[in-house]
Structures are given as C-alpha cells and as structure tokens.
Design a binder for these strands. Structure first.
Lengths: 345, 345
DNA sequence: AGTTTGACTGTAAGCGCTTACAATCATCGA
DNA sequence: TCGATGATTGTAAGCGCTTACAGTCAAACT
C-alpha cells in the first residue's frame, strides 16, 4: 500500500514520455490520439515509453485543450433501488457504442441537490445530460439553456411539456390501473405514495387515481393517502398504519413496487390475506414484483427502451442532428396475483 | 430544447465574470474559493456577475491549475443489483462529509474492463479509489503503485494479502453456513455460484463449502456445482437444472441472494417445498432476502460498515495519515426459513 | 506628518495537452 | 539532376483557472 512517502511522485506527463521516446510532445499526443499519422517505428517507441512510465493522460488538461470530453452525465434520484438501474444500463450500453463515457450522480429526490449535481457534471465536462422527470429548480433549466447543454427528460411523457422527453404517461397508466380496481368493486381505497413535492411522477400517478375515481363518480376526497419515502420498510409501516384504521381499505395502491413489496411483507406478518382481504398494487415492474409471493400486480415500465432511446436522442442532439421530438412509450399493466375483487363486508 | 443554433455559445469563463464585475480574474477566483479574503462589496458584485452569466468553473482547468480534484472513484462489479448499492451509499455519505465527490464506474465483473475504468477514473483526476475484491490484472496494480494512487480493497478480508483492505472473510463465513447445512443431515449438496474466474469472493465462498465438507469427512468432489452469471433468472434456471438431476440435492447453497431468490422462485413454480423438500441458502443479506417467502437463510454482510470504513481509510491515505492496517469485519449468518433438516429419503 | 500595518486587489506564470502551422526529408517524375 | 509531393515530426500558442508575489490605499500609530 502506498503509505511510505508523504511526497507523492508526480505523475508522468506527455513531456516525460516525449523525452524518454526522444520525440516532441506533439508526436506523443498523435501516437495516442491519431496513431495513423505517426510512423510505425516512432509509435512503437512512444508506446514503450508510455508503458515504462505508466503514463495516463491528464483528463483536465485534455478536456481543457480539446474542449470536449465525450462524457455524458445522468442524474437519477437514487441508486439504492433497482428502478433506474436497468434503464441506466441500457443507456450506458448505447452510449458506449458511440465511444461515450457515462458519469452518474444521484440527487436523493431533492431538486436542490440535483441542481448542484447538474452544475457539477457540467463543470466536469459532461457534453450532455440525462435527467429524470420534469420537476427541478428554474435555475437548473436556466443554467442548462444558457450553457446550451443538450439534455433529455426521461421516465415521463407529458403532452404539453416543451422539453424533449422520452417516457410514458404516468397519469394515464395509473388511471388505467385504478379504473380496474374500482371495477373490481373496491370502494375503500388507500394510496401509499412516495413524497411528491419534488417528484412529478409521483404526483401524476396520484392524479391518475383521482381521475379514475372521478370518472366512475366517486369523490377523490375519500382517498386515504399515506406519503412516505422510498424504502421497503416504509411501505410496510405505511401499510400497517392503514390496517389500524377503523375503516380498513380493501385496496391499497402503491406508488411504486418497493413500497408495495413492503406492504405485502407487512400483510403477511399481520396475517392479512392478499388479495383475499386486501388487494395491493405496485408500479414499475421491477424484478422484485415477480419474486414476491403472491406476485405483484403492477404497471410495467419500459426501462430499457427509455434508456436506449434517451441515449439516441442525446447523441443526436450532441451531434447537432435533429432528434425528432419527444417519444411516448407505453406502460402496460401486468395482471398478476395481488389484485382481486373487493371483499364483501 | 437546445436545437436551434448549431453554433454553441461558449460557456462564460472566469475572465468574463471578472470583466462584468470589473475586477481581476484572481479576485473572482478568490470570491469563489476563499470568500473571506474578499471584501463584502466586491464579493457581492462578483456573485451577481456569476449569477447573470450562469458561470460554472471549468473542472478541467480547475483541476489542472489546482492539482487536486477532491474526487474519489469507486469501481464496482455491477450496478444492476443491490449488493453494492448500500455500501456505496455509505461510502458516499462519509466522503461528502469531507467535501469529496464520488465518481462511480462499473466493471461488469471483468478484470480487463476494470483496468480501463481504473485508468479512466485516475485520468479523470480521482484522488483515491475504492475497489472490490483482490482479483485484477497485474497491470492494474502496477499502474496504481506507479501513480501512487491511494486505494483500498473492500468486500473482502483475506489474511495474508498485503493490500489495505476492509471486509470480511468470505471463505470462513460460507464455511460456517455449510457446516450447519451438513449438520442438518444434508449429504447431497449443490452449489449455484457466480462465475468465479475473475471473482475471488465467489471462489472463496466455494472454497469455504469445500472446507466444511472436508472437515466433516465428506469429499468435496461430490459437490454438484453450477456456475452462472448474476441474475435472478439465471438462479432460477440453474435450480431447475439441478432438480432435473437423477439424484436431486437436498440443499442448494447459492453464492449470493440474487441467485438464491431465483432458485426460490423456481422452486415455487415447480411445486417444490422449501425447506421441506429442498433447502436453499443465499449470501449477502440484501433486502430481497427478507421479502421473499419463505425468508432466505443467508449470510449477513456489513455493507454500510464497509462503505463507511473504506471512506475513512481512503481519506486518511489521501491526507498522508496512517490508515492503520486492514480491517476485518464480521459476517454473520441470518437463520431464517429456507434452511431445514434434510429430508429422509 | 511620516510610518507602519493590514486588508484588498491585480499581475502574470504556469498546470498538461491539443493542434494549426512550419519545417524536414526521402522519394518520385520529368 | 531538381523541384514537387507527401509523409513525419517539431514549434508554439493557447485552453480556463489558481496562486505566489507585488501593488494600493486607508486607517492606525508614533
């Protein structure tokens, strides 16, 4: 382990390599970035020197001189759970086909933190950004526009938003699910939602449920709402709280699969039969939803398509090509086992 | 969306800000990095100019001039699953207390890819690195040593390794679990392991099982081993394959929880009772293991402690302090529901 | 009044790399 | 044999920021 000397040996520079290979720095630079412009012999000498010295280019200097980094950034709300993982993976794969490196940061669902991260990624030289959802500080948008950084908003598609986006209509998808829940006879419905103050996806999903209720002539006011942060244990706790209510809901719609998994777990613990006593639904269709038992009825979200599509849009933007407008993908409901008819009281 | 002009407006520089504020670049730099050295008035003018122009420092230039980035890097095998997420989160939290930014990259369990990522992170200015496991190319180590980059190897603790590490003894932990499995009367045992060619943790875990068998006077040769990549579906498939064997194992030890969850899911599909017909165990104790039903007997890994500890070691190293040697943490077995006595044949 | 002092601010030299432009040189065709 | 040609290589001007060092100036002393 490098503990011995407090005095760090400075990393070798292009100049060191040049000296050792007996050429100019320009030649070394070319050997590395445009090998075809250098004679076979020289290149071999240079590469040997690079090896000997353990040279690696200084990114800062390189970015400064070349004015491009071939690096894209992505800011996702959280890395803790799998929701964004698959989409990000697809995003990354697509980018690497274009020789682009991905830098990931997470905002912990905070608009303010996200703003910082945006600045930080841009300062780090990100040529373009992937962002999740529309909710962010006005300063964030102003900054992006002023700096002319290409970006795309993913995981949502809301008509009427001017920004380039790729995703699905959260509201519509959740409304479809809620409609079905109502049609199964559920009248006492509760929602466990993620905190929605700075999360348009959560808000839209909630709005979708209200839409469905109105459509079926029920008052959305009767909806029992529990708001909590993203974690299985919170889902469990929220569910327990709902079950203590004098009038227990017969269906609990969760804002995402993680909360639903927690609810499900708590139901098992409390000896509540799902869907016999209470129905539970999720949203996202992450792997988890098929693993739990009974398997979760949820909304399937096209993670990979969003990731891949976002990459394509962003590459087009960066290259000054026409990305061709926002893309709406479909979110479809996966009917599994946790949703059943309302229990007769 | 920024599609209008192909000609990008150059981002504002320190000089632009200086001009607008009517001061020198030095003063602007100071206003930003050492505000106490600048008069209240000037600072206000500078900040206003910064706001107006939407200025953000150019990371490359900053790193180049200041010769430090306050950025640490971490290279984890995968982001797809939750194993490293929690530890990384703790790592990140600890770092941010020291004003350090974290850059994350993933190697897809490939030593070669990891080497690239190491170079890339270092070139990007990472002041120190978090690495997972000991397995990597000699070039990787050579590079780190030569460049004198502080690093710590996490998620493993193997006595006899010279490198600074923080983690637990994978072999010992798995041996303890296997011993218990044998003591429950299991004689026909199978293993579903992650690919172990470039993964010392997987190898160690396998070795642990063999240790236990030898200890109890069974031949490790009788171990049925299925090697597969990290994914729930692969765990399921591997389990299905094992169940087709003429002599079905009575216990299936999985190299990690994800594979175990897959196995469990397949067992349910096949109508195999766990642990009545077959016992299944996991490793890692990720959240998943408590959500599945029956809950997974697995090995609890001190994720957060490793993350936090790794951060501390690395910060110490970077500051030229004495980190004080490798740290062994305990991995303890979580006895839950998927392990039971061997079924009488 | 003449210094001294301390708080601010400005000047300018790099940091390591890319790249336009210039120089060199062996090879080729007339 | 001589300039033309094209392949290589070298020269040197930045890229945007930090920071040592040097000024400037008003307040505080003597």
């Amino acid at each position: 382990m490098p503990t011995d000397e407090p005095a760090k040996i400075d990393p070798p520079t292009l100049e060191d390599v040049a000296a050792r290979a007996g050429v100019s720095t320009a030649t070394v630079s070319r050997s590395l970035n445009a090998p075809e412009q250098v004679s076979r012999n020289t290149r071999k000498r240079v590469m040997a020197a690079v090896q000997d010295l353990g040279y690696a280019p200084n990114f800062g200097a390189q970015a400064l001189a070349a004015k491009r980094t071939n690096t894209f950034g992505a800011i996702i709300p959280t890395m803790e759970n799998a929701i964004f993982a698959r989409g990000l993976q697809a995003f990354q794969e697509q980018l690497s086909e274009h020789g682009i490196t991905l830098l990931v940061a997470s905002s912990s669902y905070s608009a303010e933190l996200e703003e910082q991260q945006i600045r930080s990624l841009v300062a780090r030289g990100a040529d373009a950004l992937l962002l999740i959802g529309h909710d962010r500080t006005p300063q964030s948008y102003a900054f992006l526009e002023r700096r002319n950084i290409p970006y795309v908003v993913a995981w949502v598609y809301a008509s009427g938003k001017p920004r380039l986006s790729i995703g699905f209509d959260n509201r519509k998808a959740m409304a479809a699910l809620a409609r079905r829940v109502l049609d199964l006879g559920h009248r006492s419905i509760a929602v466990i939602t993620a905190e929605y103050a700075e999360n348009d996806r959560a808000r839209e999903r909630l709005a979708g449920i209200r839409d469905a209720m109105r459509e079926r002539d029920f008052s959305p006011d009767e909806l029992r709402i529990v708001e909590t942060t993203y974690a299985i244990s919170n889902g469990a706790e929220a569910f327990a709280r709902l079950m203590r209510d004098s009038q227990r809901p017969t269906a609990v719609l969760c804002g995402n699969d993680v909360l639903a998994a927690g609810a499900l777990m708590m139901a098992r613990q409390l000896g509540i039969d799902v869907p016999g006593d209470v129905s539970i639904t999720g949203f996202d269709d992450i792997e988890l939803s098929q693993i739990v038992s009974p398997a979760l009825t949820t909304v399937h979200v096209p993670h990979r398509e969003m990731g891949r599509g976002a990459a394509r849009l962003l590459v087009a933007l960066r290259n000054g090509e026409d990305p061709g407008g926002s893309i709406e993908l479909e979110a479809t409901i996966r009917w599994r086992e946790t949703l059943g008819p309302a229990r007769k009281r």
